[in-house]
Every structure is written in structure tokens, then in C-alpha cells.
Amino acid sequence: MSIVIENCSFVYPSSGIGVHDVNISADDGELVAVIGSSGSGKTTMLKLVAGFEQANSGRILINGRDVCGVPARLRNVGMVFQSYALFPLMTCAENVAYPLKIRKVPPAERRRKALDMLERVGLAAFADRLPSSMSGGQQQRVALARALGFNPDVLLLDEPLSALDASLRVELRREIRRLQKEQGITALHVTHDQEEALSMADKVALMHQGRLIQIATPQELYDRPVNRRVAAFVGHANLWDGVVVDADTVRVPFGELRCSCSPYVSGDKVTVLVRPERVMPDADGTVNVFDGAISADSFLGAVRRYTFSVGGSGIEGETARRKPFTRVGIPPEAVQLLPFEEA
């Protein structure tokens, strides 16, 4: 089972916004997270795959079958909604059994399957309760059981965790991932929470203003962002305007940094990226070492996040070190050059 989105475009007739020429693919058993700020088009992509909207151009293939023009109810996709969307007048078991009822599974068998699914999300004891008597986390588990219980071809997750408390969210991330792997089902997961995407997904697609900016593994997206926007959206980042001086020097507002500048050449304007955890406090040596003072300091438990001021500019850093320091170093291999973009 796979999902392939090919050159998909869609524009809402009323507002004129939409998605443009998007290509995303999820291979068999993969979980692909689609992230982006609100209005980036990520939810629209999901609606196109689910069949709630029909693409204006391009193709969507589910398991090799072109589903364009196929109504949502015939696409055989399991969907989990942000608002749970459990039917309030049906018990949990009835909710989970509902898609089986639609598919004309006999009552006894669908009850058995529903109980089995509820068992797998740890809610067998709640089978005959109404959804409204349960907590948000439990309701979302039921919704997950309902979305998976009828052996859909693919699983679509529409911000499934954003209505939940922070502590529950982490727990449910694992749960969703576990069930998805157990079933070996291909999943598309839309979220605005980049941490959620990085921790769960095999691949992450970042969208902005209706366009796909980058799709890559979580590590690659973090380590090799294609541009300033990806670098800023995923994790924390120092982003400075810079000018290439020579093959291994770039000038930033607070001085010059040694790094590998290829493929840029002398005189090119670039955006310079350094992740905060790569900034070394009390660094030895003479390469990329800067003297200054800590101007902002917040203790976050495992790490301490600080701003280090060098001649009017700030370097964001993260460290486990508790002692004060007056010098930081930036290893040349930690410096990445991205195409120049205004902040």
C-alpha cells in the first residue's frame, strides 16, 4: 500500500487559496508527516487524499489506483480527526463497528472485531460507554480504533493530538506509531507540531503557502534544510545574513566564520545557519572563537539556553554547562550556508 500525490493543485473557489503543484509520496508502511504553519495547505492536502475535496489538476494514487473523482466514502481510507468526531449517540463499540456495519459485516462478527480493536488500544473495558463520558485521550484512542478497524488502505491523521494535554500527547504519539507499525499501514499525518512530526515520522514534508518546500527524513530535514524557512521552522536556529569572502570564509555581522563555502563563490550573499547545540561554550583554539558576554539566559532543566552577545550581535546557544563563560566557539563543520533570503 502506498500513497502518491503527483503535481496536485487545488484552489478553494471562495477564498482563492489552496495548494499548488504538490508532490508527496509515502511508501508501503511509511508514516509521512506533513507540517507547516496554519494556512500552509497541509490540511487541504489531507482533504484531497480523503476525497472531501477534488484536486483541480494532478493525480492521487492510493495503492497504485488513481482515486481522482472517487467519492470519499468509496476510497477506503481510515481518518482520525482533530475533534475526534465520534458519534455521540453510539457507544465506543458501536462507533468502531460502524464502518463494518456499512460494509455489511454481520452483527456478531463486527462486535467481535470492534472489541478486538478496542482491546488493542487498551479500552476494551469501555466498549459500552458513550464517548462523552470519556476523556479526550480515550476518545481519540477510540477514534483511532475506528479508523483502523475496517482494514482501510491508508490511515489519515488530521492533527489528532492538538486537542490533548501535553503529557497525553507524547503518550499517544507512541501509541499511534505502534498501531501503525503493527498494522503495517501507510499513514499521512498532518500536524503543526514539528516535534511531533520529527519524533514519529519516517519522512516529513514541510509546506508553506500551499507549496511543498522539502520532503525528507526527520534527520535530514533538521541537518540539511533546503532553505531559511525550513531551518527556522524545524528546531531552533541561528540564522545570520552573510557574504562569502573566499572558499572557506564567510562574513557574518559579528566577524568572520571559517567553514566550507562550496558551492558558493566569493561575493555571494548567503544565509548562515548554526544550530544552537553546536555552539561550544569556553571553546579552546583560535578558529571561530568569539569573546563576549551572556546577555540572556534561561534554564530549561536538561539544557540551558542562552544568548551570547558579540559586538551587538547575538549567538543563540544550548549547553549543559552551568558555569559562566565569556567565550564561545563554532566548529567549522557546524556552519551551513543556505541560499540568501530576507528574514
Partner: peptide, 25 residues
């Protein structure tokens, strides 16, 4: 509207949605 979308994604036709979800609600 949300419940109806959910029912649609689970495979319910318009008539099924109307009599299973909308009318009882």
C-alpha cells in the same frame, strides 16, 4: 458537519449518514 465527514470517510452513503447520524442526533 464534522461527524458527517467522519461517517463519509468510513464509507457511509448520503442516505446512511442521514438516517444513522443526522436524524438520531
Amino acid at each position: 458537519d464534522k461527524l458527517e465527514l467522519a461517517a463519509e470517510s468510513l464509507g457511509a452513503s448520503f442516505g446512511q449518514r442521514f438516517f444513522h447520524i443526522i436524524l438520531p442526533s
